[in-house]
Simulated assay, not measured.
Amino acid sequence: MTENFRNISKVGFMKHNGGLEFRKISDTEFEFTTTIKEFHMNAGGVTHGGFVMSMLDSGMGTSAHQVIKGRAVTISLNTNFIGGSKAGDKIIGYAKIKKHTNTLIFMYGEIKCDDKLLATAEGIWKKI
C-alpha cells in the first residue's frame, strides 16, 4: 500500500522553509522527508530545533488530515531532541496514528538521518 512521495509544500510555511515530501505507508502510518539546507543550521552548526519541530508538525499534521480527510490543528506537540544533522543530510520522518476519536487524533512521530534517531514527538490534533 506504500505510495510514492509527493510534494506537500506548494504553498504556505513549509514551501518557504525548504519543502517537504510525504507518503502514506498504511492506514495509520506515514513518512515525510526533506534535505537539510544551509539556512536550516543554527549557530552551533547543526539543524535548528525549530526546523525539526516544524518538520514534525507539518508531517504529523498532514498525517492527521489524511486520516480524517479534512482539517485539523495542532493542540499539543511535545518534542525530544536526541541527535543532530547537518546541511546536505536527507531526513526521514515517520508518523503513526495511535488513537482517533470523534474530535481528537493522538500521534507519535520521529525523525531519523541514516537510521540515526534525531528527534521523537507525541502530539494531539483537533478536528475542525
Results as ranks from 00 to 15, higher is better:
His40Gln: 13
Cys113Pro: 03
Leu118Val: 09
Ile82Pro: 00
Met60Gln: 04
Met41Gly: 08
Lys127Gln: 11
Glu31Trp: 09
Gly50Met: 01
His100Pro: 05
Ile36Tyr: 02
Thr34Phe: 15
Asn17Ile: 09
Lys37Pro: 01
Leu104Val: 05
Lys98Thr: 12
His48Pro: 07
Gly44Trp: 09
Met1Cys: 06
Thr103Arg: 10
Val11Gly: 10
Met60Ala: 00
Thr28Asn: 01
Ile68Met: 14
Thr47Leu: 05
Lys99Ala: 12
Val46Thr: 14
Glu38Val: 03
Glu31Met: 14
Phe5Asp: 06
Leu117Gly: 01
Ile68Asn: 14
Gly18Lys: 02
His100Ser: 14
Gly45Asn: 08
Gly61Ile: 11
Gly88Met: 14
Ile124Ala: 14
His65Pro: 05
Phe30Val: 02
Ser58Gly: 04
His65Phe: 15
Asn17Ala: 15
Lys127Glu: 13
Thr47Ala: 02
Ala95Glu: 07
Gly49Met: 10
Thr47Met: 11
Phe39Ala: 07
Tyr94Cys: 08
Thr34Ala: 03
Asp89Glu: 06
Ile97Asn: 00
Ser9Trp: 04
His100Cys: 12
Val67Asn: 08
Gly45Val: 10
Gly45Cys: 10
Gly18Leu: 04
Glu3Phe: 06
Lys10Asp: 11
Arg23Trp: 08
Val67Thr: 14
Met1Ala: 05
Phe13Thr: 00
Lys10Tyr: 10
Trp125Pro: 05
Asn42Pro: 13
Asn102Arg: 01
Met60Trp: 01
Met14Asn: 13
Cys113Arg: 07
Asp89Cys: 05
Glu31Thr: 13
Phe22Gly: 04
Leu77Glu: 11
Ile91Gly: 03
Arg6Pro: 08
Met53Val: 07
Glu31Asp: 14
Leu20Tyr: 06
Trp125Gln: 00
Lys37Ala: 06
Ile124Asp: 04
Val46Phe: 11
Ala72Val: 09
Asp114Ser: 13
Lys69Trp: 11
Met41Gln: 15
Gly83Asp: 10
His100Asp: 06
Ala119Asp: 05
Ala119Lys: 06
Phe51Cys: 03
Lys37Thr: 03
Arg23Tyr: 09
Ile68Leu: 15
Thr101Trp: 12
Lys86Val: 15
Met1Val: 12
Asn4Met: 11
Asn17Trp: 09
Arg71Asn: 15
Gly84Asn: 09
Thr101Ser: 15
Lys127Ile: 12
Gly45Arg: 08
His16Asn: 15
Gly83Trp: 07
Gly109Thr: 04
Leu77Met: 14
